[in-house]
């Protein structure tokens, strides 16, 4: 048996604390996500059982609700709108600016910017990712990877919404003694577009509000805000 020095004993604790501090933002939102998802599951289950009771059907067990199309479509319709929001924001802010907003880049910098500004190819730094340095299709792909992945996640979650939405819609149709519909009929239905657009409008409103409110309002210490003393017309790095 070897004696443990105080330094060795405290090292893992320090390492854990370091990990928590370095990833606090992701862990905080990850935890809130799980809590909100659990809350949505409980509320959605109660809501579905209320509707089943009204229609003369017995309640659905919680475990079955968690694997049901009703739960899946409610989750997916919100996910797709979030990924659409980030995809549009990432791509739109390449070409469009909002003078005075900390969410915008500087006026005159609209577009993809030069290799020097983007630190790619010959301008890559020692710590730059390999695909930023290598050039060719890999650098071109890596230069668009964030928007691309957000766009793909949006399309995947929207597809999931359409598939789960159709299944939930058809179960409801059968409960109401009506015929089920095809996938094509469903994606042109009021149910599908109501679910999609009600989420899109709220996300777009939130982005527009943030871009405009960030011109005039401040949140001390937040990287999402300009410094408190920055002028209203200071945009992006100008602040």
């Amino acid at each position: 048996m070897t004696a443990t020095t105080p330094r060795e004993a405290t090292a893992p604790a320090k390492s854990t604390r370091g990990f928590l501090r370095d990833n606090a933002l992701s862990l905080f939102f990850g935890l809130l996500f799980l809590l909100a998802l659990g809350g949505q599951a409980a509320a959605g289950w109660a809501d579905l059982n209320n509707r089943l009771h009204t229609d003369g059907f017995p309640p659905m067990p919680f475990g079955r609700y968690m694997t049901s199309a009703d739960f899946a479509v409610d989750v997916a319709e919100n996910w797709q709108s979030e990924y659409l929001q980030f995809f549009l924001y990432i791509v739109a802010t390449i070409y469009l600016i909002q003078r005075g907003s900390s969410e915008s880049k500087d006026p005159g910098k609209e577009g993809r910017e030069s290799d020097e500004e983007q630190l790619i190819g010959a301008y890559a730094k020692p710590g730059s990712p390999a695909w930023a340095r290598i050039g060719g299709w890999r650098t071109a792909l890596y230069s668009r990877s964030l928007g691309l992945v957000m766009g793909i996640l949006f399309l995947l979650s929207w597809l999931a919404q359409s598939i789960a939405g159709r299944a939930a819609f058809n179960a409801d149709q059968l409960r109401q003694r009506e015929d089920p519909v095809s996938w094509l009929s469903y994606v042109s239905s009021a149910d599908f577009w109501n679910r999609s657009l009600q989420n899109w409008q709220s996300e777009l409103l939130a982005v527009a509000s943030m871009a405009i409110l960030a011109i005039y309002l401040r949140e001390r210490g937040s990287p999402e805000s300009k410094p408190v003393g920055a002028p209203h017309d200071a945009t992006g790095s100008e602040s």
Partner: peptide, 19 residues
């Protein structure tokens, strides 16, 4: 993005299964 893709693909697969 990789971490995000995992639950999303699971959801898509789940949706297909439920369809």
């Amino acid at each position: 993005n990789r971490l995000l893709a995992v639950p999303l693909c699971a959801l898509a697969l789940c949706a297909v299964t439920l369809s």
